[in-house]
Amino acid sequence: MNLSQSPELQQFRSEIRSYFQNDYPKDILEKVASGASLTTADVRKAEMALGAKGWLASAWPKEHGGPGWSIEEQYIFDEELERAGVPTVTPMGVVYVGPVVYTFGSDEQKAAWLPGIADGSVGWAQGYSEPDAGSDLASLQFSAVRDGDEYVLNGTKIWTSAANHADWIFLLTRTSKEEKKQLGITFVCAELDQPGVTVKPIISIDGKYHLSQVEFVDVRVPVFNRIGEEGKGWTYSQYLLGNERTSYARIGGKRTQLANIRAIASQISAGGNQRLIDDSAFAARLSAADMRVDALEITVLRVLCSVKDGGSPGKEASILKIMATETAQEITGLFCVAAAEHGMRKFDDSVSPEWTGDAAFAAPGVATYFGTRAQSIYGGTNEIQRNIIAKHVLDL
């Protein structure tokens, strides 16, 4: 594989990097670096800054409001965004439902929904999992009953990401019961700010609010809000999940985290006057994490090359989901090792003073560690991904 970049791509990278260094909202970068949660106003400001450049929907073709970038340009943009510490773009709009709308939606739906997604002014949430239908998504029971020109929605969605910042939600609903449970599922969109919708916060183990339980009681939406054909929602959801599982990689962010860990470990004692970075066990674990990121990057590039002609990544995207989430968990585990070493040595009189400063990285680092525990569960558990690989990739 040729990983060298042309002068044109190098110039493109410089342009993107310059924007994030000089023009992107500094207050957002500072808040992210501190580990603080973003408010809805912060999320809108962050994403509308990218939308104003035409960069928020970075993978969209020009005819649907995107920049029309090549796969290589999209990859560079994502890498520089992560490297700069920009908050991860909420994927529910630009990565998930947007491509479903412009691939399967009507012209009227495209006109109604795509502009607000692309400019960052309208937030979306994903209504997939239910209290009794998590990884077995096809078992969902959330109902959409046709009543003239409307659907009446009833049921509960749980672990709903970004509902606290969203204006709309896209839902997998059951419109009929079939012998095969993947049939009879319909893809429906709904506004969250209407009677009968209740959004209940779920505070995760990292102390943050980014998940919700969303309840619908006799909520009416027009049939216009159905994307594609009734009963074909499972097909559309699989297209969406291919995009979702490639979005976990975040190579630039992982490399930045590893660089931060190296800097931290160079200032922390591992006993006596030996630095943590010189401890053989820690150094080996850090090197292994480096290699995992390298392997993840190569695998991402291979999958992206396979979709250059358009379409969604195939079942191979499950490989990325496993690799990306387990690598994220390993990297954040290294932050905890560094925090633990600092805590043990801070009051040790034998340690040089420069190794006993405040560990400003510890609180956000440990919160991030807790947050990544969920990565191997959401988006389809890693166990489910291994089943997909065995069945659909390896034909076992």
Rank of each mutant, 00 (worst) to 15 (best):
L304R: 04
L56G: 08
D42L: 01
Y151W: 15
D132I: 13
K31P: 03
Y209M: 11
K62N: 08
F335K: 03
D349P: 15
S204C: 10
L172D: 03
G252D: 01
I76H: 07
H64D: 06
D167Y: 10
S352C: 10
N387M: 12
A288V: 04
N243W: 15
T356S: 13
T235S: 13
K181C: 03
A284H: 08
K391G: 01
G127F: 11
K62S: 14
D206C: 03
D193A: 14
K181S: 14
N225H: 13
A52G: 14
R146A: 14
D136R: 12
T327P: 02
G120W: 04
I251M: 02
D136M: 12
T299E: 14
D348H: 07
L3A: 12
T39D: 10
S106K: 08
S129G: 06
V351L: 09
D149H: 14
Y75L: 05
S212G: 07
D309R: 13
F224H: 02
D349W: 14
G207N: 06
G310V: 09
H210G: 04
D107F: 08
T235K: 06
Y369I: 06
P313W: 03
A249W: 00
T246N: 02
R83K: 15
Q375F: 11
T88Q: 10
A367F: 02
M344Q: 09
Y24T: 10
E230G: 13
I203L: 05
H165P: 00
K391T: 12
E82V: 07
S135V: 15
A359H: 00
A363N: 07
L396T: 08
F216H: 04
Q74R: 13
T90M: 13
N382R: 09
F77W: 09
Q109K: 12
D279G: 01
P87N: 11
V214I: 10
E215L: 06
K110Y: 05
G272Q: 08
I203T: 14
P313Q: 01
V43C: 04
V293A: 01
A84F: 05
L56W: 06
A360W: 10
R146C: 07
K208A: 06
E179N: 15
L394D: 01
G357D: 08
V101T: 01
S376I: 03
H64R: 15
V32T: 08
E230N: 11
I169E: 05
F224P: 08
I322E: 03
S269H: 04
